[in-house]
Simulated assay, not measured.
Amino acid sequence: MDIKNKHIVITGGASGLGLELLRQLEADNHISVIARPSAGVDLLRKAYPDVSIYEADLADLDAVETAADALAKTGQPIDMLINNAAVQYTARFTDTNFRYETIRREIDVNFTSVCVLVHLLLPNLMQSPFSMIVNINSGLALAPKADSAIYCATKGALNIFSQSLAYQLEGSNVGVKQVFLPLVDTSMTKGRGSNKLAPQEAATEIIEGLLSPRANIDVGKVKALRLIQRIAPSVATRIMKAA
């Protein structure tokens, strides 16, 4: 798929990896962003006046529906929907600082909102001669870690959803791809981990992968994880458990 003169929708495009994808794609394409109201959105408006912005906290499904409806009603075909936004809470269920209310937010941002957006924007995706749904996933969808159980579960759900959705859309003009990321240096991962991949590098690898026919785009260390899983699954499990 040639990525020029396309209408690309990016969730969470006001910061982190989403913003870097926008920077690398904006010159040759029209970008629409769905992002929660924030100072980053205000800066985005000033820096990229040609970008269309639809404000919605993806944990608020009513707001997601309102934003998607507004985007759909423009009548513009959508060539690519990049479901990038995510949140991660690291407290364990056994920790005293575990917050019950984060469960629903994490599920809605990371998974439910993706399903909602795919459903509501599918008619616009169908209008393009060839379009693509790109779900940004994590290596934790392949093997979970001990922390962030809800996050790992949402990414596992996104993996299965993406595969089933691809089956449903076989023979149509809409393709489905998944991106499996290692730890990327964004605000979400601040203070955690080491040797994190820079967002610029991650975005470049993703865009290169979008040009290939592969359904799965493994970025950075995820390539090694796939190999270890094939050769020694128990080793991969131990590595990721302690991640």
Results as ranks from 00 to 15, higher is better:
M1C: 00
K4R: 14
H7I: 02
I8P: 02
V9F: 06
G12R: 01
E20N: 06
E20R: 06
L22C: 02
R23I: 05
L25R: 02
E26Y: 12
N29E: 00
S32E: 05
I34H: 03
A35C: 09
S38P: 03
S38M: 05
R45Y: 01
A47S: 15
D50H: 10
E55T: 01
A56L: 05
A59G: 15
L61D: 04
A63Y: 08
V64T: 08
T66A: 15
T66S: 15
D69H: 15
A70E: 05
K73E: 15
T74Q: 14
M80E: 07
A86K: 05
T90F: 14
F93W: 13
T96N: 09
R99A: 14
Y100T: 10
E101Q: 10
E101F: 13
I103D: 04
R105V: 06
I107P: 00
D108I: 00
N110V: 00
T112H: 06
S113F: 00
S113G: 04
C115N: 12
V118K: 08
H119C: 13
L120N: 10
L121K: 02
S128T: 10
S128V: 08
P129K: 13
P129W: 05
S131T: 08
M132H: 13
I136N: 03
S138V: 07
G139C: 10
L142T: 06
D147K: 08
A149I: 15
A149H: 00
A153T: 06
T154V: 13
G156L: 04
I160A: 15
I160C: 12
S164V: 11
G171H: 07
G171P: 04
G175V: 02
K177C: 00
L181Y: 01
L183F: 09
D185H: 05
M188V: 15
S194F: 09
K196E: 12
L197F: 07
I206F: 02
I207A: 01
L210A: 05
S212V: 03
P213N: 06
I217K: 03
G220V: 13
L225V: 10
L227G: 13
L227N: 08
L227T: 15
I231K: 11
I231S: 11
A232Q: 09
S234D: 14
V235Q: 12
R238M: 15
M240S: 14
M240Y: 04
M240Q: 12
K241Y: 13
A243K: 11
